[in-house]
Design a protein around this nucleic acid. Sequence first.
DNA 1: TGAATAGTGTCTTTCAGACAATATGCC
DNA 2: GGCATATTGTCTGAAAGACACTATTCA
Lengths: 225, 225
Amino acid sequence: MKKTLYPEVFENPAVTVDVLLFTVENNQLKIVLVKRAEEPFRDSWSIPGGFVKKGENLEEAAIRVLNEKTGVRDVYLEQLYTFGEPNRDPRARIITVSYFALIPSKHLKKPDGEKIIDIEYFPSNKLPPLAFDHKKIVEYAVERLKNKAGYSNIVYGLLPKKFRLSDLQKMYEVILGHQLDKRNFRKRMLSLGLLEPTGEKDLVGAHRPAQLYQFKKREVVFFDQ
Amino acid sequence: MKKTLYPEVFENPAVTVDVLLFTVENNQLKIVLVKRAEEPFRDSWSIPGGFVKKGENLEEAAIRVLNEKTGVRDVYLEQLYTFGEPNRDPRARIITVSYFALIPSKHLKKPDGEKIIDIEYFPSNKLPPLAFDHKKIVEYAVERLKNKAGYSNIVYGLLPKKFRLSDLQKMYEVILGHQLDKRNFRKRMLSLGLLEPTGEKDLVGAHRPAQLYQFKKREVVFFDQ
DNA sequence: TGAATAGTGTCTTTCAGACAATATGCC
DNA sequence: GGCATATTGTCTGAAAGACACTATTCA
């Protein structure tokens, strides 16, 4: 079979980016979903996503789409996986490159667009029915997040600049889904050398004040890469 | 800005799959490259790849393309990363989903197509000039392979059905780029429970014959997922 | 018996995990 | 003093890493 130099345009699939935006709120790992305003799957919840534009690369597209749909800026995004089953979208062939990110829950804003978009956090283990193959994508992302958490400072995105070690521990506990020993957790976190004490103390509450820490670097460091 | 329900077709990028096919030969980690017969980058070496067809999913496309270009079948493929810089191909917007695989070096065959395609193994640390952004893709894949090797039986694909432990060790040494202690290696590999002795012995050479082993399961198991 | 590779065990160090008492500040 | 949270160290078991000698076959 002869292959044409230029692929037939009509065969080109559309390419989207989907952003899995996680947060921790009320001791639960939650994910941001938006309600679809159009068919197919009108009124179903879905992962915020959008088409990749001509001049932008995939990460730029993810950043733009995230901002348009959720108002969120300045987050660390990591490419997750590319889903491309031929019939995952009933309208047309749409291949989606998924990204994930973690943000503090208060960072979410409703976008300023002309129409109000329904946007909401859902506990990652109590999802509503989702459009397309989005259930599978969310489950894949949750799995990856749990695996990555143990070897990274990925939770950086979830915390304010200065935080208590007990805040940090709580984030890990929620993501991993189980409790951690306080002494072992502190030992390990501090030995990684990613944190530094700010010298400031948290003076809230009728109890001993906690040292506030911050991450030395803004970049997320992965230890398995 | 109003978003159309259906993306403008002319904006759709082409989507390809590229397969990074590694082997170990002469104690070197090598990768399969094909010489381009057409512009752009005519006569440059490149990663075997091809366009995703309408009815197939990404992995099916990778399997097909791999077979068409290299004659290789029945390999374990793993999705690696999706590259989508807008100008990575001078002809048009082409987004590529990369996969990688490992095969015994003898499995490579020149394809039976109408024209002879130049296809060759290159040591992964001595690459010729590559077309497009393929250098970056290969380097990314080599890095991932090294990181994965320690936690998986991914080298399964590199060995014949029955093999000596010293063969297995050699594969790891070549991929990781450094030597391993024989006793510690055997201790760890056998304790993982993935291998079983076949009872057969390798009677080649003027020395004590080696026990031949095989993997219990055909599936590649990753310990970090 | 010499050459070549197969096969094996111990010690040490390191890391993860279990576990409980003291410290500090506010009321 | 009572309450609430912060902070700290030891022991144990498991796994990783350093390290050297014996076993088997063939020429």
